[in-house]
Amino acid sequence: MRLPSRPVKPAPFEYHAPESIADALAVLAEHGDEAKPLAGGQSLVPMLALRLTRFGHLVDLNRVPELSGVERKNGMLVVGAMTRQAAVERSEAAAAVPLLGLATPLIGHFQIRNRGTVGGSIAHADPAAELPAVALALDAQLEIASPSGTRLESASDFFVGTWTTSVGDEELLVGVHFPVWSDRSGFAVDEVARRLGDFALVGVTCGVELDESGNIGRAAIALLGMASTPVRASAAEAALVGANPSAADLTEIAQLAVANLDPPEDIHASSAYRHSVGAHVVARALATAMEDATK
């Protein structure tokens, strides 16, 4: 029995299912800006279904095994772009980057994370998403392949605007290199969302690393939901470095973190609300990270 077919929602596209990075790049090169890589589809498919976007060609990466995997390499944790978020949650290797383990469970719901990928989330570059903020906080290197070779781009140059990255039409994000911090480090992710699994209204991912004398030797703070991209709080980081964890005035440092930001306004939160809550989550997360570092 076959039921009468309802109108399908996305606009028509030609479907490509390459089985290697080289083949995926060849399809992208052939079709230029008409082609879009399809990773886990947890953001792209809704956007297609709602016809917020349309492409003549979808390049499905789900049959490219070399894009998945988590491994330690040269002091970095290298995560293949198509590694499922659920796999990161379960990965023992990924524990070397605690921010991943803290941020990933906050992405959508378990059914979403079963399909959603690390590279997909980062390449989608939603300013309220967790993994772009993790990549930015840690100065991750994004490995981008093109027909002419592979380049590494730092996260600070990668995020250009809402849903916009520096990846060109003929390029493909193939992996993310996360720096591994020493075990004198502490991390925290804190966010305010209307419901569990919703996009955060405001959030922060942060880390602090103590030096030999017990003072803060390195600090990293990236805010999400506060601008058109995730943003580093460089002034607040600078104020933390050299300070003793117990002496740092976190309320003041949190103010520094949001001082020059003009957060977006929408139906769920005004700009002023995001500003105020942003400072609170930074202070709260830094306290958690310092406790984590000193224990």
């Binding site: 589809g41 947890q42 498919v45 809704p46 279904a49 659920a86 979403i112 079963n114 399909r115």
Partner: peptide
Amino acid sequence: VAVRSCLMF
């Protein structure tokens, strides 16, 4: 694994 069947082709 459990997935949304509306988010897969």
